[in-house]
């Protein structure tokens, strides 16, 4: 393999996903752009319905093409995945780009043996015989930390615990040494103690297989532990995007502040948590201007009418989409940091 860490693999530009419904058009994702390099973990954060999962399903070609309108470009190894014929895209799925989903209870077929389901992922893209595919399945189950992999491969999903099922899903995703692993809320359905193990496993796997990981989550703690870069999404739009260390140290967008202040940590007492007032907007009739303005405590006159562009507001800063002047953001950000420390 001639892979090298840091090589740019995925380039998403202006991704927009619309679902025409009988009530009107739901614009689930609007003009989303990001890139992923080999060895990088990109965390995509946002509340439910912010378009995180839909973006990834669009990249994988798992949205029903007959019932969605997708525009933009998803460049992967020089090809635009969005214009690839279905059968060509199928050959990419599970081979070069693999996906792990949120609910490992529902994502494994209840009537097939775990090993068989992994072996099937192998034979989907190779001429290997049943025997070879089964050995590959056992090998990977062992690799992701299933004890007695050889006999456990013969088990059915309901005989696995939640964490083991998610390990099996990861094993399934790895059968072809993919370039990109998309993890859509991989720990949301699991116990807290198991969550850490799964995140650790994803990190290990990323290093060993030298792949790029997209980690979708609504849990900032998860992102803080593992991501190299972070993209904050709201109402289908990118609010803030940059290196993880900067986003956590100097968040620029009021929505990101809201997310951080509502996140419990060991140090912070529960009554010190500040929830974001209100709820996410309907994507059927999104608010005018900045989608976050109805909930934003810092809104001012242009916010309700003008959509803030995603741009770097000053030298040394990272991308955000907010009308506030940069020095104002720095000032408010400093106040916020002081309050948190207190």
């Amino acid at each position: 393999m001639t892979s090298s860490s840091g090589e740019r693999m995925l380039d998403v530009r202006g991704l927009t996903v619309r679902f025409p419904t009988s009530d009107g058009i739901v614009q689930a994702v609007s003009d989303v752009s990001f890139a992923l390099s080999r060895g990088e973990t990109l965390g995509i954060v946002g509340e439910s319905g912010s378009g995180k999962s839909v973006s990834n399903l669009a990249i994988m070609g798992l949205l029903n093409r007959a019932r969605t309108v997708i525009s933009g470009e998803v460049e992967f190894k020089g090809r635009d995945l969005l214009t690839l014929p279905p059968d060509e895209l199928r050959k990419v799925r599970g081979k070069e780009i693999a996906m792990v989903f949120q609910d490992p209870f529902a994502c494994l077929h209840p009537m097939y043996r775990v090993g068989a389901q992994i072996a099937e992922a192998f034979t989907a893209h190779s001429d290997a015989g049943k025997h070879a595919a089964w050995s590959r399945a056992v090998e990977l189950l062992d690799h992701v930390g299933i004890p007695n992999a050889k006999s456990r491969a013969r088990d059915y999903p309901h005989q696995f615990s939640g964490g083991m099922r998610q390990r099996a899903m990861i094993a399934m995703a790895l059968v072809h040494n993919p370039d990109i692993l998309i993890c859509d809320e991989p720990t949301t359905a699991l116990d807290v103690t198991v969550q850490a193990q799964i995140l650790e496993l994803i990190e290990d796997v990323k290093r060993e297989f030298d792949i790029g990981v997209i980690l979708v989550t609504h849990d900032l703690g998860v992102v803080a532990e593992t991501a190299n870069s972070v993209m904050v999404m709201y109402a289908g739009r990118v609010m803030e995007y940059g290196p993880a260390a900067e986003i956590f140290r100097h968040p620029q967008h009021p929505y990101a502040w809201g997310l951080l202040d509502s996140m419990p940590t060991i140090e912070r007492r529960l009554d010190a948590l500040v929830p974001i007032e209100g709820s996410p907007p309907s994507l059927l009739a999104p608010p005018s201007g900045c989608p976050f303005h109805p909930r934003c405590p810092y809104r001012f006159e242009p916010c309700a009418t003008k959509l803030p562009p995603l741009k770097v507001p000053a030298d040394g800063a990272h991308l955000d989409a907010c009308h506030l002047p940069y020095d104002k953001k720095v000032e408010l950000g400093a106040q916020r940091a002081k309050k948190v420390a207190a």
Binding site: M60, L62, D87, R90, K91, V92, R93, G94, K95, A98, M99, F101, D103, A106, C107, L108, H109, P110, M111, Y112, E120, A121, A124, H125, M169, M172
Partner: peptide, 23 residues
């Protein structure tokens, strides 16, 4: 969800429907 998993593996639509769906 497991049908989505089957598609994500890269199975053909025929395999998805006749193997995973029908069973």
């Amino acid at each position: 969800d497991y049908i989505r998993t089957a598609r994500a593996k890269g199975l053909t639509e025929r395999q998805v429907i006749f193997k995973h769906g029908l069973r």
